[in-house]
Design a protein around this nucleic acid. Structure first.
Lengths: 327, 327
DNA sequence: CTGAAAGCGCTAACAC
DNA sequence: GTGTTAGCGCTTTCAG
């Protein structure tokens, strides 16, 4: 920066100012600086900037895993929006472990990020304590309806479950089941299950929960549906913890020669890339992963611009039930 | 850090040393420092550390998109391995755009990262120039066989295409087609296609390329196969740019009542979560996304430990053809 | 094994 | 609109 300043015949602080607010510098100084930067191939050091400003242009995002298409979508949308403001994404994976999360939050804080984004509302006490003490804005995503640290953006997973149940009942189904994968770790899948069961019971319809500890996959879906049909032969409508599981159900039904939706109606969750194309096309619930990321980015950018973030705000990004031929 | 030093009755530099190499500090000083850290709830400031050390504990990873399961896997594996060494992942998405990549590399450099990881071997001239000038180690992943900036880790995509073609020919197929999605942007899909065509021609077998500009999806797969069968009715074996496309082919064949593999053999790429579970289970090629991430992390960690990275090293992580019932 | 000293490259008051 | 000044919180020689 000193070299640039010298070449442009201004002081370093003018260069600094130009870099952060070009409009605050006179046109002549500005263009001289621009030329010098170009000539010297100058790349500002953001680490030094972050230290001096006591806040880096980094946003820490902590998700269970980007292998999960839902979080990949949110991370991707957020990254795209933050990039325009020259904010960097620092990524961490909890692998659904609160201890890992705690550790990630700790190191995240040592980067003095512009904001910390984490997934869900359930965290260890230590995590909660660390975060409520800092001045760094905290955003929790992908879950609503619990105690939140500060801002939360997402939707109510119980409502998703309830919507699935009501849809199946509307289609004339009276013997429901929820097929859940990895529900001991995936709190949000569990909430959807709870909402499903509650809505079914309220409607006076029979409901079972069949689950498997492995992560959601088509294999697990196939196993779960065959188990379900063995134990509860009259089952005529199922909701699945996500579309991978639902796809496995469709595959298994095809192998068993079981007609979908005539004999069994299937509802998924996620609207993944194959969901509209399979046989039959899958009725599913599309969450708002993209919107969650965009809204989070918007809040962070506004906060950085000086608008202080509304305290304890809640943004409900909703979800959509897509009625296709599997139900 | 000064507070910790005071409480532990040592100097700040001893605390600093303890933090980086605990074994270099006496046991008594060490435990006093540990107690002070705990008592004060001290979290080191990595930004300041990065500035002083002229290299931050951050690794910049630039991929086309984490929405793509392949890159999500690599990013995830890398993150997990780097975390153990307290290295942070800074993530950027190019969306298959070399201009974007150039920009991302520029900002990546301004973080003085411990290493920069980017996808593929094809970059803009400016990107190449920036990277060859820095002292930051550069690793290119997911592609082998072109001019590399420094280290490359991945496999040869032409070999993947060739392996698919040879497999189909071995299964007695003589009228091949390659179904490609977004090949104008996805260089690696194009390379696989090239390898496929070359191997087929070499074997004296007929081969067609049918493509669609949209990103790979089951919908695109369905469209591509019906187009193929219309234009080249004798086609009896297809390879697809990835398993999403292949899945769409299976769906469409089912709708058309076309027997797989009797009438048409199908080979995918990716071994995605549904590939073993669908009807029939999909023959596919499993790339080494996980291994790529692990190897990249290993190299970076070794470099940080002082072992200098072998210049212009190439690590071939290979791939595996999984012969299942679709062929 | 420990401590003193000298920055790392930038930002942010503040004065001009 | 521009420059001066005083750090930001750490790391890293180098002595002792």
């Amino acid at each position: 920066m000193a070299d640039v300043a010298e070449l442009a015949k201004v002081s370093p602080s003018t260069v600094s100012l130009y870099l952060r607010r070009p409009e605050a510098v006179s046109a002549s100084a500005g263009s001289a600086i621009a030329r010098a930067i170009d000539k010297l191939n100058y790349v500002p050091n953001l680490v030094a900037g972050g230290l001096a400003a006591a806040s880096s242009r980094a946003v820490s995002i902590i998700v269970p895993s980007v292998r999960n298409a839902f979080f990949a979508e949110t991370v991707s949308a957020m990254q795209a929006a933050l990039r325009k403001e020259r904010l960097q994404v620092i990524l961490g994976h909890t692998e659904y472990d609160e201890r890992e999360e705690e550790d990630l939050v700790r190191t995240a804080l040592s980067w003095a990020p512009a904001a910390i984004v984490l997934t869900g509302l359930s965290h260890s006490d230590a995590t909660r304590r660390m975060l409520s003490k800092t001045t760094v804005p905290v955003i929790e995503i992908w879950e609503l309806g619990g105690p939140q640290i500060d801002t939360a953006i997402g939707f109510h997973h119980q409502q998703v479950g309830a919507a699935s149940a009501r849809h199946l009942i509307q289609q004339g189904r009276r013997h429901l089941a929820y097929l859940g994968a990895r529900m001991h770790e995936d709190r949000r899948a569990r909430l959807r299950c709870d909402g499903f069961v509650a809505a079914a019971q309220e409607a006076g319809v029979s409901v079972e929960v069949i689950q498997h500890p492995a992560p959601a996959s088509a294999e697990v879906g196939a196993m779960l549906i065959s188990e379900t049909l063995q134990q509860h032969a009259s089952t005529d409508g199922v909701a699945c913890s996500n579309d991978h599981v639902a796809l496995g159900v469709l595959f298994e039904c095809e192998r068993l020669g079981l007609a979908v939706p005539d004999r069994l109606a299937v509802v998924g969750f996620g609207d993944l890339s194959f969901s509209a194309a399979c046989n039959p096309p899958l009725t599913t619930i599309r969450p708002s992963g993209d919107l969650i990321g965009k809204e989070a980015a918007r809040l962070i950018i506004e906060h950085l611009a000086g608008h202080d973030m509304p305290e304890h705000a809640t943004i409900d990004t909703r979800f959509t039930l897509l009625h296709r031929r599997s139900s």
